[in-house]
Structures are given as C-alpha cells and as structure tokens.
C-alpha cells in the first residue's frame, strides 16, 4: 500500500470547496437570470448565497492546517506562477472575500434599499466565474501530473465542475426543502423553485454519468499506466465497491432516477409538479454523499497507483 501524502483534509477540502463554490455559482446564475428583483426564486439565490461560503472557508481551514508548514501559507501570496495551485489559491482567496460579501447582501431577505439589489447583482457577476474557477482548478491541479496516471486527464476537471455544481444544487435543494417559505401563498413559487433545482440537478447528474463513462471507457481501452491505474475502481479493484455502490448507485443513479420521476410528468405531459419533503431530502442527501465518495475515490486512487514501468 502506498502512503497517502494527501489524506482526509484534502479530500474534504475538494468536496467542501466544490460544494460551496457550486452553491454560490448556482445562486448567482439564478439571480442574474431573474434580474434579481423578483421574489420567486429568491429562495434559491438566497440559500445558495448564504450557505456557499461556509463550506469553502471550512475546507480552506482544513487544507491550511494540512500543510507541512501551515503558518507559511502566506508564501502562496508572494507570487503568481503557472502552477494550478498558485492560480487556484488566488482565485480561492478572491472567491472567499467576494462570496462572503455576496452572502452578507442576502442577510435581509428583501432588497429594501435599491443599492442592495444592485450590489447583489454586481457580486453575482463576479462570484459566478470565480466559483467556476474554484470548482475547476482542483481538477486541473490533479490532472496536471504525468506521474499520476489516474488523474492525468483533462476530463477530471470537467468531472469536478459537474460534481461541484450538482452537490451545490443539492445543498440548496436541502435548504429550500427544510427552511424555505412553506405558507400556502408561496406554494407555487416554492414548487417552481424545486422544479428548477430538481431538473438542473438531473441534467448535472446526467453530465457526470457521461463524463464517468468516457473516463472509464478511455482508460479501459488504452494500455499501460492509465489502464493499470483505472483497474482499482473496476470490478475486483480495491476501491471498486465504494465506487460502484457509493458513487454510481447512491450518488448518481438513485437521485437521477428519482429526479426524472419528479420532472418528467411536468416536462413531457404538462402536469403540475409535485414533490414531497422526504423525497427532496433523500435525493439531496444521496447527491451529497455521492459527491464526497467521488472525491474520496479520486484522491485515493490517484495515490495508490503510479507509473508501472521504470
């Protein structure tokens, strides 16, 4: 067994930063799409903005203290070079500051003062690209190393963005389900919100399935290091059961089928969208669990495999 230079703190960081960046990105996109002044869908934008920065900060705290020299972390800001970790650090720092301000703008539910609505929009314009950068750079960071065949693929960054957006959406879904306006007069708005979240999440999970399929297929069809590396998640490999049960079944297939089950009647037959609290919570939790399992598998698999010939 190889030693793991990057362990649980890094795995948690990848998961939490992806989730938070995804939630803020979804929030910002929804806000900008709706002009930011309408009450409907305000819950999505508001909960996304409010919960997003917390996991990102928590994850950042974890990796700073995972460093061999935690108190040297400021050395990262002494320069900007082409290392994905350097670019990512700057993006992460900017994102933490701006998404924090963005969250503060959402503490009052109504944008009582006109400038508040404007501030929300300006910050949303900044937080969406930064959120995507935070979600993507970790995939580029891992993907950049020929020494790590399991990671060394451009598709990893794509997988990380999709996983970040879908876990972020799931987190918002959970918040809206648990704390959203439940009064009768808001019923329609709430159902619209959930429809938007559930259908987007289904799309994102579909994308994840496609990317994972491509990843497995290319790795399996190739020869040498990459093929040897991917064997750890193929049946018989040491991480196979967590991958197939945790990521594929619980993290993707179950929520995907449940979401289709909710979305399709409205999408195809124009029926009213109906959802239940239990289903929303179950779907959101399984997406979150699957997102964590995915990061776990990728970080570990990359380190227990390596070049096969000297």
């Amino acid at each position: 067994m190889h030693e793991l230079n990057w362990g649980l703190p890094v795995i948690l960081y990848l998961f939490l930063a992806g989730l938070g960046a995804g939630a803020v990105t979804v929030s910002g996109s929804v806000l900008l799409r709706k002009g930011g002044f309408h009450d409907s869908r305000m819950d999505i934008a508001r909960y996304g903005a409010l919960i997003g920065p917390i996991p990102v900060m928590l994850g950042t705290f974890l990796i700073v203290f995972e460093l061999g020299q935690p108190f040297r972390a400021l050395n990262l800001f002494k320069m900007l070079n082409l290392s994905p970790m350097s670019i990512g650090t700057w993006a992460l720092a900017l994102f933490i500051i701006l998404s924090g301000l963005y969250a503060i703008c959402f503490i009052p539910r109504q944008a009582t003062w006109p400038w508040l609505g404007k501030a929300r929009r300006v910050l949303a314009w900044l937080c969406v690209p930064l959120g995507i950068s935070v979600a993507i750079y970790t995939g580029v960071l891992l993907g950049a190393m020929p020494a790590r065949p399991f990671w060394n693929s451009p598709i990893l960054a794509g997988l990380f963005v999709l996983s970040a957006l879908s876990t972020g959406t799931a987190a918002i879904m959970l918040m809206v389900a648990l704390f959203g306006e439940k009064s009768a007069e808001h019923r329609e708005g709430r159902e619209n919100d959930q429809y938007l979240l559930v259908s987007s999440d289904a799309l994102l999970l579909g994308g994840e399935m496609l990317v994972i399929f491509l990843f497995l297929m290319f790795a399996h069809l190739t020869i040498g290091d990459v093929r040897h590396a991917v064997e750890v998640i193929l049946p018989g490999g040491s991480l196979a059961s967590l991958f197939w049960w945790g990521v594929v079944l619980i993290g993707i297939l179950f929520p995907f089928v449940m979401e289709l089950f909710q979305v399709v009647p409205k999408l195809l037959y124009g029926r009213t969208f109906r959802s239940s609290l239990v289903l929303e919570v179950a779907v959101a939790l399984s997406v979150l669990a699957g997102g964590f399992a995915l990061r776990y598998i990728i970080v570990v698999a990359g380190q227990v495999t390596g070049p096969t010939t000297l």
């Binding site: 460093l67 972390a73 050395n75 020494a147 790590r148």
Partner: peptide, 20 residues
C-alpha cells in the same frame, strides 16, 4: 524559506525522489 509543505511536488515527481 519559501516551501509551505503542500506536497504537490512530491505527487508530481515521477521518480518518488521527494518526501516531506
């Protein structure tokens, strides 16, 4: 004087020549 111990270089070296 600059190293923060992030271990990125340790992951990236194809020869396992580095360690923390």
């Amino acid at each position: 004087g600059l190293c923060i111990g992030c271990k990125y270089c340790i992951q990236a070296c194809p020869y396992d020549a580095r360690f923390l």
